[in-house]
Design a protein around this nucleic acid. Structure first.
Lengths: 124, 124
DNA sequence: AAGCGTTATTCCCGTAAAGATATAACGATG
DNA sequence: CATCGTTATATCTTTACGGGAATAACGCTT
């Protein structure tokens, strides 16, 4: 009798997981992290506050924004220094479109993972 | 007019990428790395040589093997110390079944990524 | 009994990634 | 023109991870 996954796992608590991103020039640049950051920037109007809400250092947040802007045709985040409230940031229309696209992509990916997980569960 | 991905990317050299693994008890344990390692162990009969062929340290290879064995119902790699050639390792029938399953899973995942990439290309 | 190549395990070190800190520039407001 | 909170950037520290060396055990061969 041929071995199957039935004979392999200890319990039934296994699942297929994964991560997804968009790559350009060999480097990741769109992924769950950036998307979430952009959404926080949109709601707070500030890279600084967005970073704080996510428990992320400002430096890292800024690096993400910088990479996002430099790898896109038009800026995803438009920033302003000085001014009434000391400055601030907002996300572009293109960024909103990208967020929307990424959510849909992620949804399809989650369906893929769930389907694979349940077919794995059947085998166990 | 609503913005689309057409307006976002610099060039057309973007692609959807990702990684996939099987998780148990919250920790990854099956993935491309372990699979490749097992295949090398199978062909060389030695954890040591397998690690060398993959440019990986013996320590890391051993850690992978150890985690693989401890998280599975039955051992994936059966090892022997001492003996004619100083010892050696071979992979179990269950390991072969798991390799086969993982290859198929990976194939389906690659198809998913390619489909998403080409539909992304259409938008750019 | 000595030699061999492997498994098994521990310990130290170098590097790379991330975090924390510091500081300058900015521009509206009062 | 001083104040304020933010962006922008450099620098230093800390942490995490993997590599490499070192060592022991093992069991067949000679």
């Amino acid at each position: 009798m041929k071995k199957s996954t039935k004979d392999i796992f200890k319990k039934g608590s296994y699942s297929v997981k994964g991560s997804l991103w968009i790559e350009g020039d060999g480097t990741r640049f769109w992924g769950p992290g950036p998307v979430e950051l952009l959404e926080h920037i949109e709601s707070t109007g500030s890279i600084n506050q967005a970073a704080k809400e996510m428990g992320m250092s400002y430096k890292k947040a800024w690096e993400i924004v910088s990479r996002l802007n430099s790898m896109s045709k038009e800026p995803m985040v438009v920033t302003a220094t000085g001014g009434e409230k000391g400055g601030g940031s907002s996300i572009s229309v293109a960024a909103k479109a990208m967020i929307e696209y990424h959510h849909q992509l992620r949804e399809r990916f989650l369906q893929f993972l769930e389907a694979e997980t349940s077919s794995l569960q059947e085998m166990i």
